[in-house]
């Protein structure tokens, strides 16, 4: 089986996947560097499947659409990347499938966004619809802060920063959960703990093992299915009323989660590829 490895920069996560692919006698890697690709809408790449590991969301999403357009299966699928890459589409898909999430509001002007924040109450969280690694997230604790952030976004940001995604702040006692879904299995989960309210490991959050209970596996699989399924990292909050799904990531980073969970996540991903070829 020939696996097209769609990438730009190769980080430790990608190196682990490459090592795993190279270990398999029945798999061959074809490197597809997104900085060198040119698409013509007709030519099929010489691969049986594309594994998407690009660091750029826009490149990944468009490349997936173009590969699928010529009949190449992709992990993850284009529609999955599109939904996961945009928090508004994620929220809408979660709601379509009845998956619990924090209260959200979406608004298109600073004035309506302020009204939305006031309606949700403080603290509230403002996030760019497209973005990752906890960048440009703001927790606003009062009306003054909300006005300031919204004005700055509208004036200093590019046009997509004036699409306002507002979430209710979830009191999460210093940690959230990331669950790793591969196909129809929740293979592992970690707690991400930090003194800062943003707990991403990219921002210094510490990873520790989180037991995959039936409840956690259940909601994580439902969230993954809501996005279209595949290889997905589901971020969740624990609350008194149960889990809430914060977001779903389609190019998941797992390098800090292998040792703490004892689960060989890249091995699970590569094994899944066989099942993903039609």
């Amino acid at each position: 089986m020939r696996v097209g490895f769609l990438h730009s920069l190769i980080r430790r996560d990608e190196k682990l996947l490459i090592a795993e692919l190279r270990r398999r006698r029945d798999m061959e890697i074809v490197f597809l560097d997104d900085r060198r690709l040119v698409f013509d809408l007709e030519t099929r790449p010489p691969v049986d499947l594309v594994l998407e590991r690009s660091i750029n969301h826009s490149r990944a999403m468009h490349a997936l659409r173009l590969f699928e357009g010529v009949g190449t299966a992709c992990v993850n699928a284009y529609e999955v990347a599109r939904r996961c890459g945009d928090k508004i589409l994620t929220a809408a898909s979660l709601r379509d499938h009845g998956v619990p999430q924090p209260e959200v509001r979406i608004a298109f002007t600073p004035e309506s966004a302020l009204a939305a924040v006031e309606e949700l109450g403080y603290p509230a969280v403002l996030k760019p619809a497209v973005g990752s690694w906890g960048r440009l997230l703001s927790r606003v604790n009062d009306r003054d802060a909300a006005e300031t952030v919204l004005e700055h976004k509208a004036i200093l940001g590019s046009y997509h920063h004036s699409i306002f995604f507002v979430q209710q702040y979830v009191e999460k006692r210093g940690r959230d959960i990331r669950a790793f879904v591969v196909g129809d299995e929740c293979v592992a989960a970690i707690y991400r703990t930090s003194d800062h309210w943003i707990t991403n490991t990219a921002r210094g959050g510490r990873a520790s093992n989180c037991p995959v209970t039936p409840d956690l596996a259940g909601i994580s699989l439902r969230a993954a299915q809501a996005m279209g399924g595949g290889v997905l990292a589901v971020d969740l909050f624990e609350t008194g009323g149960g889990f809430l799904v914060n977001e779903v990531n389609y190019t998941m980073e797992f390098r800090n989660s292998i040792d703490v969970t004892g689960v060989n996540i890249p091995e699970r991903i590569v094994s899944y590829l066989r099942r993903a070829v039609p």
Partner: peptide
């Protein structure tokens, strides 16, 4: 030198 992170980089 590696390229600088862009706004749409991430997971």
């Amino acid at each position: 030198e590696a390229p600088d992170a862009e706004e749409d980089w991430g997971e």
